[in-house]
Design a protein around this nucleic acid. Structure first.
Lengths: 157, 157
DNA sequence: CCGTATCCATTCCGATACTG
DNA sequence: CAGTATCGGAATGGATACGG
C-alpha cells in the first residue's frame, strides 16, 4: 500500500502491488479495474446523480455501491455536491471523471465490435446529431494512425 | 450466465448479471473488467509471448495467470499458436485483442494525467518517432470533438 | 520452461435488515 | 431517500509444491 496525493489534494491509498507501479495503465486499472467502477462512471455520464439512480441503473448491491462511490470520491473522479435544490447532496463527475470519456467511448466501440454475436443486434455509437461516430484511433502528431505493433502502451513513469 | 457465440465461433460463457446486459460497455467490462486482464493485454502488446513472460511482467500468481489466459483465449482476445521455432506454443493477440489498443492508449493517457501527483514524474505516450501522441479525443464525422455532456456512452444493444 | 494442484487468507458480492 | 450493518457464499489472490 502506497499513499499518493492526487490532483485534487486528497491523499489516496493505492494498492500498487504491481510489478511496475509507475505504469500509468496499472495505476488507472488500480482505480477503475473492477466489476463496477466503470459502469458507475458510465451511468454518471448518462445522467445518474443520486445513490438510488446508480443502484437501479447498475443493479449493484447497496453496500458495494456505497463502497465504490466512496472510493471514486477518494480518487477524485466523483464529488458530492449540494444539489441545486439545496436539499440533498448529489454525486457529480469531476474533471478527472469526465476525462474517462475517451476510455468509455473506445470501450463501447470495442464492445460493439467484439462482444456481440454476428447475428445479434447491438447499438452503434452516434453523436448528438445521430450520425455514427467513426472508430476512435490514436494518431501521431502528423495524423498517422498508430498501432500496437509500433507503439508501446506500457509507460514506466 | 448466458452463452454467447463470439466473433471467432467459440461459445463463451458471460456473467451478464448486469441490469442491462445489452450495453456494450457492460459486455466489455465483463471481459476485461478485473484486476489483471488489461495488464496482460498490455504486456502482450509490449511483446510478451510466453507464460513466464506474463508472469514476470505482471507479477501475477501463476494459478490466476493461467485462469486469466484461459478466459482471454475463450473470449477470443488471445490465441495460442505454434511458435515460429516450432517448439512451443505461445500466446498471441488476436485481431480482437489488438483492437483494445485504443482503449489502452486512452487509459494510459488518463493515468498519466490523473493517477500521478503533480510533482511526481511520469511517462508521456510517444509514437515510434518519439513525438508526443496528442490526446485521443472522440470526434463526430465532421471532426467536431465529442464530450460526455453531449454524447451518451451507454449503448443498449 | 509450462503449467496444474492445493492450501489458505482476503476481497468481492448479493441479500436482507435496519437506521436517520 | 440515503445510506449502514451483518451474514454467508463465491471469487480472487499469493505461496508453494508438484509433474509434463
Amino acid at each position: 500500500m502506497v499513499s499518493l496525493r492526487n490532483s485534487f489534494g486528497g491523499v489516496v491509498g493505492l494498492s500498487l502491488t504491481w510489478t511496475d507501479p509507475n505504469c500509468p495503465v496499472a495505476r488507472a486499472v488500480d482505480v477503475i479495474g473492477d466489476r463496477w467502477s466503470l459502469l458507475i462512471v458510465r451511468d454518471a455520464m448518462d445522467g445518474a446523480r443520486s445513490f438510488t439512480d446508480f443502484q437501479q441503473r447498475t443493479g449493484i448491491a447497496r453496500n458495494i455501491l456505497a463502497d465504490r462511490l466512496r472510493k471514486l470520491v477518494a480518487h477524485g473522479l466523483i464529488s458530492q455536491v449540494e444539489a441545486p435544490s439545496g436539499k440533498r447532496r448529489v454525486y457529480e463527475l469531476t474533471a478527472a471523471g469526465k476525462d474517462l470519456f475517451p476510455v468509455l467511448v473506445t470501450l463501447r466501440q470495442w464492445g460493439e465490435r467484439h462482444a456481440f454475436d454476428a447475428d445479434e443486434p447491438h447499438s452503434v455509437l452516434v453523436d448528438d446529431e445521430g450520425t455514427v461516430v467513426p472508430r476512435v484511433v490514436p494518431t501521431a502528431g502528423d495524423g498517422r494512425p498508430l498501432t500496437s505493433d509500433t507503439t508501446s502502451v506500457r509507460g514506466r513513469g
